[in-house]
Write a protein that binds this DNA or RNA. Structure first.
Lengths: 95, 95
DNA sequence: GGCCTCCTTGCTTTGTTGTGCAACATCGCA
DNA sequence: TGCGATGTTGCACAACAAAGCAAGGAGGCC
């Protein structure tokens, strides 16, 4: 019954942009306006990706004046990414 | 650069049906014709889901007569699923 | 060979996702 | 109060993904 919840977290990870955001946040808290130039995307797009990560429970935010600071929602996340990554490399597929 | 590979594995996990298939395969090898009634889906649909999991390197198959037997491609997969699952529950979101 | 079972592939339909632009809300500052 | 910086949301469009049906390939058995 919680295949659904698993798949929803996976959906949040199913975009290279969002994975990249998580990796950036591994390096510590960042505000949206720092992410925009790093990702080279429209602010609205970045905002939407962050909203998706947030709904999935992978990131959290706090306001600091005009800016909104984003951080990983759990210290487990780097481990999870690494876990997927090593699986992805181990099973590198020739398509 | 391997945000892409991570996101591709995540894409494979981004469907409840495919997560369910992986969980079934945790219990051991199964052939497609066993999965069809368990999943209550058209054989063609099951076949496609298996192909996606296979391309992502999450499952492997071998032919046994008419049947094709499917198994998890790595013993790490149950751990990965559990990892996502606990994160998903920990961060249960009220939407 | 003919036939059955199992599986895959092509096609179509339907729904979801990602993107950019424009408009708007929020906050801080002068 | 007005303005600039930062984020979010509505809309439109393109791209992609999931499903079922129909047709076809592959293996085993008579």
């Amino acid at each position: 019954m919680d295949e659904l919840r698993v798949s929803e977290v996976a959906k949040a990870l199913a975009s290279p942009v969002r994975v990249r955001i998580l990796k950036i946040l591994e390096g510590g808290e960042r505000c949206g306006c720092e992410l925009v130039p790093l990702l080279e995307l429209d602010p609205s797009v970045v905002s939407r990706h962050l909203a998706i990560l947030s709904r999935a429970g992978l990131v959290e935010s706090r306001r600091e004046g005009v800016r909104i600071m984003w951080r990983l929602a759990s210290p487990e996340i780097p481990r999870l990414l690494h876990c997927i990554e090593s699986l992805a490399c181990e099973k590198q597929v020739s398509r």
